[in-house]
Amino acid sequence: MPRIHSLGWLSLMLLTGTLYASSNSVRLTSGEWPPYTSEHLPYDGIMSYIVTEVFSKQGIRVEYGYFPWKRSFRLAQYGEWDGSLGWTKNQQREKDFYFSEPLLNGHDVFFYLKDMPDKVFTWKDYSDLKGLKIGATLGYIYGPGFDKADLDGEINVLRFPSDADLIRNLYLGRLDLAVMDACVGHDLIELSYPTHSSLFGHTRKVVRNSSFRMILTRKKPENAGLMEKFNQGLASLRDDPVAFKMLSSVYARPCYSEYLSEGTNSG
């Protein structure tokens, strides 16, 4: 369901005594991807907070629509919505979208179900994953290594509508591995299986390090100027105390900080 957010919006209206026209609003698709985006989190998650705050300081209100991620992408791609957030950049997507500077960084890993409490799954290259059922999310890319192994048939990849579906099917034994952002996986496990979270593990080796960005459709020419304006505002957000506190709370979490140490490899 679409939700409208703009921090400080009410005070701004009281000061100006006017309502902004549609040209002073932006409609972005999103999805359930805690801790980054979720309609059940304060400020709709840390990534949504960053976007909302940058636009708010420029007098622009944000409307978020929550959909399955593949649909979120298509709605933005075809110009039915202005854009979306939480996407990584590649040449194919740049044909359809303007990309913001990075909002947050993340780390994709493999989650697995332990058959023993101290079980640790390790892998060196994609040949080690032959014969395993690997869950991935529709519409996502996981870097050239994973995508090539998938395309070449070196690994067996099954696609699902959401990361939550991956966790559920992993828990039910229908998957051997599930690839997703480390912090997203941990949050979904704690949300869905709080009393069984110790049954899940994840790899130390990273599938992909990535930068998450906001995208705006090229179907609307005015979005080029809007993105330039957004990136200028994003650069100044580092001085925002609420953003700093929220970012610090994310970066301090083990699911994030353990991948920042030197020597962590990606596939």
Results as ranks from 00 to 15, higher is better:
Leu138Ile: 08
Leu113Pro: 08
Phe99Val: 07
Ser30Gly: 04
His107Arg: 03
Met214Pro: 09
Asn223Ala: 10
Phe212Asn: 05
Asp128Thr: 03
Val109Cys: 08
Ser266Ile: 04
Asn105Met: 08
Pro144Phe: 10
Ser210Thr: 12
Leu237Cys: 05
Leu75Trp: 11
Arg74Ala: 11
Glu222Met: 12
Arg253Pro: 05
Leu129Arg: 04
Leu104Gln: 04
Ile50Gly: 00
Met214Thr: 05
Ala235Lys: 15
Asn90Thr: 05
Ser211Leu: 07
Glu101Tyr: 12
Gly106His: 03
Phe146Ile: 02
Arg74Cys: 05
Ile189Ala: 01
Leu177Ala: 01
Ala182Val: 03
Cys255Thr: 05
Ile141Tyr: 13
Gly185Leu: 05
Leu19Lys: 06
Phe244Tyr: 13
Val250Asn: 02
Arg71Tyr: 10
Tyr20Ser: 13
Gly83Asn: 01
Asn231Glu: 10
Phe55Tyr: 12
Pro221Phe: 11
Trp87Ala: 01
Pro102Ser: 03
Leu226Ala: 06
Thr37Leu: 14
Leu260Asn: 13
Leu103Met: 03
Gln77Leu: 04
Arg3Asp: 11
Leu177Gln: 02
His186Ala: 05
Phe200Asn: 10
Ser100Leu: 11
Arg213Glu: 03
His186Trp: 08
Ser249His: 14
Thr217His: 12
Leu188Thr: 01
Glu63Pro: 03
Asp96Met: 03
Leu85Thr: 05
Glu190Asn: 15
Ser48Trp: 08
Ser249Asp: 15
Lys57Trp: 03
Ser198Arg: 13
Ala178Arg: 10
Gly45Thr: 01
Leu226His: 05
Phe212Gln: 10
Ser236Phe: 13
Tyr36Asn: 00
Gly131Thr: 03
Gln92Asn: 14
Arg27Asn: 09
Glu39Tyr: 14
Lys245Asp: 11
Arg61Asn: 10
Met13Asp: 07
Arg168Gln: 14
Leu188Trp: 09
Asp165Ser: 15
Gly143Phe: 12
Ser38Pro: 08
Tyr171Cys: 00
Tyr171Val: 00
Asp240Glu: 08
Gln91Ser: 14
Ser100Lys: 11
Asp82Thr: 06
Asp44Gly: 00
Pro241Phe: 08
Gly17Tyr: 14
Ala252Met: 14
Arg71Asn: 06
Val206His: 11
Ser162Pro: 13
Gly139Asn: 10
Ser248Trp: 07
Leu172Arg: 15
His202Ile: 00
Phe67Tyr: 15
Val120Ser: 06
Thr52Asp: 15
Leu28Ser: 06
Ser127Phe: 13
Glu94Gln: 04
Ile46Leu: 03
Gln77Val: 00
Tyr251Gln: 12
Ser192Met: 15
Gly233Ala: 04
Met1Ile: 10
Leu41Asn: 00
Ser56Tyr: 04
Asn156Asp: 15
Leu247Thr: 02
Phe244Pro: 00
Gly173Arg: 07
Ser25His: 09
Arg71Gly: 02
Ser72Asn: 06
Leu260Ile: 09
Glu94Arg: 00
Ala21Ile: 01
Asp176Ala: 07
Val206Phe: 12
Tyr66Trp: 15
Ile134Gly: 11
Gly83Cys: 00
Ser198Asn: 13
Lys70Cys: 01
Tyr98Ser: 03
Asp115Phe: 09
Pro35Leu: 01
Asn90Met: 08
Arg213Ser: 01
Gly185Val: 02
Arg159Ala: 08
Tyr140Lys: 09
Leu175Trp: 03
